[in-house]
């Protein structure tokens, strides 16, 4: 029994049941498949998280976001600037207690280099309802090349606990159809 010593002292020499061998083989192959599928997705898939990142001080990042927002601001929404950068440029988003700043307006089908960082605690970038979730660290600037594939208004909520106002931390990305399509 499992609570007593093995009957045969040389238990490691006992033959293994066929059903066990087959199951081990199936499980091993399935594991290998799942392992190689992660690698394959880097070649065949459109969703792989970028590993590009830089060390940055909170104040330096704050400056970059401010300059970006000032340059491309198109209007104001509830006190937060709405920023519409041209396609293909570097886009900055800032997480802080307790907002995602600024509101971004992007074009569907265009690619942007989205920079993410925090100036205080860790935050969780959670784009809804698409459900893209990325951790945001202070001190690290994460650069993701993002291509929106649907238009509309998308909420950004925070899903890393960041203190008593955590549940009020939101932001927004507006995706508009590209000019070519709307014509």
């Amino acid at each position: 029994m499992a609570i007593t010593s093995p009957e045969r002292r040389a238990w490691w020499n006992e033959p293994v049941e066929r059903v066990e061998l087959i199951w081990i083989a199936v499980a091993l192959l399935w594991g290998l498949f799942m392992f190689f599928f992660m690698i394959a997705w880097h070649f065949i898939g459109g969703q792989n998280l970028a590993t590009e990142a830089y060390k940055v001080t909170p104040s330096a990042y704050q400056d970059k976001v401010d300059a970006f927002a000032e340059k491309y601001q198109v209007r104001d929404e509830a006190g937060t600037p709405v920023v519409r950068p041209p396609a293909g440029v570097d886009v900055y988003l800032l997480g802080r207690l307790w907002q995602w700043w600024p509101v971004l307006e992007l074009e569907k089908g265009q690619s942007y280099r989205l920079h993410l960082s925090s100036v205080d605690w860790q935050h969780g970038f959670s784009l809804q309802p698409t459900n893209i979730n990325i951790q945001v660290h202070p001190g690290y600037e994460h650069v993701i090349t993002l291509t929106p594939t649907e238009s509309g208004e998308f909420g950004i909520i925070c899903n890393e606990f960041c203190g008593i106002g955590h549940h009020t931390m939101t932001g927004k990305i507006i995706v508009v159809d590209s000019k070519a399509e709307t014509k």
């Binding site: 992660m38 969703q47 998280l49 459900n131 979730n133 899903n159």
Partner: peptide, 12 residues
């Protein structure tokens, strides 16, 4: 725990 799938559920 799958590298890419994690982005769908991380911290949800």
């Amino acid at each position: 725990g799958t590298e890419q799938l994690n982005v769908l559920m991380h911290n949800t």
